Simulated scan of single mutants.
Amino acid sequence: MHILILGGTAEARALAGLLHPHARVTSSLAGRVANPRLPVGEVRIGGFGGADGLARWIGEHGVDRVIDATHPFAERISSNAAAAAAVAHVPLLALRRPGWVPVEGDDWRDVGSLEEAAAALDGFGWGHLPGRSPRGRVFLTTGRMGLAAFADCPQWFLVRSVDAPEPPMPARTEVLLDRGPFTVDGERELLHRHRIDVLVTKDSGAAATAPKLEAAREAGVPVVMIRRPPVPQGVETAASPEEAAARVLGRAES
């Protein structure tokens, strides 16, 4: 059985490791990260040319099963995967780690997009915070690809990403190149050192990046949380690599 795993997430790598002893596994990475962590098995890097190109690749390479293990916010590739799987008549499973859930002490502002997150920044009363800038200081952890949505914002931004971002971006920006997993102590120190007023993040649900939420809760820093897009209609989901592997291998053996 030939299984195509879409995505370079930690869950995708774990899934490749679980499936590799039992099937031929090809992992497809988008190629947006300069030095990605590679999974076991075969690896291809780069796009397919949309849903039609992905469907052709599935047919040409004898793929029996596709697993969409991309980032929860990789909406375009998830849509293309659903369309391609339907054209190629192969089963598709979406691996989606659970989203974050607020707990007591959290101050979350729920928004639906990067643009809504940027607009939400004007709703905070920066001036009443002792020793803080009247414009506000924002810790932005939404990735380097969506900074254009914040380009016209007057606030100061600390942008953390794996690779260096490119313009357009906010005029008052400091870039921090780093890759998780992060620790609560490290995130606590970062919020304090940069005098952060608000955290803006996506609901990726990743354990490796969750410590920033605990640090924000402790410091009383509000969080602008961007909701994740839904999985394409009709696509089955699994919440963990173990669940996804069990489903795929169970069906293969039946």
Score class of each variant (00 low, 15 high):
E174S: 03
G127W: 11
E116T: 02
F124K: 01
S161W: 02
W156A: 14
H128D: 15
R132D: 14
T141M: 13
W126T: 07
E115L: 06
W156G: 04
A120Y: 03
P154V: 11
G125Q: 11
T142W: 03
C153D: 12
E116C: 01
G131K: 09
L140N: 11
F139S: 14
V138G: 01
V138M: 06
A119S: 12
D163W: 09
A148G: 10
G131A: 13
E116D: 15
W156S: 15
A117P: 11
P168D: 08
L140R: 06
A120T: 03
T173R: 02
D122V: 05
T173F: 00
G127Y: 10
R132G: 12
F124D: 01
A117T: 04
R172V: 00
Q155F: 05
D107Y: 01
T173W: 00
R109V: 11
G125T: 12
Q155N: 12
L121M: 02
Q155P: 04
F157D: 08
C153Q: 15
R160I: 06
E166T: 14
D107M: 07
G123M: 11
P165W: 00
G125M: 07
R172P: 03
Q155S: 03
D107F: 00
L129N: 10
E166K: 12
M145W: 06
A118V: 03
L114V: 09
L140D: 14
T142C: 08
M145T: 12
T173H: 01
A117L: 08
D163T: 07
E116I: 04
L121Q: 03
L158E: 14
A148S: 14
S161I: 11
L121R: 02
A149N: 07
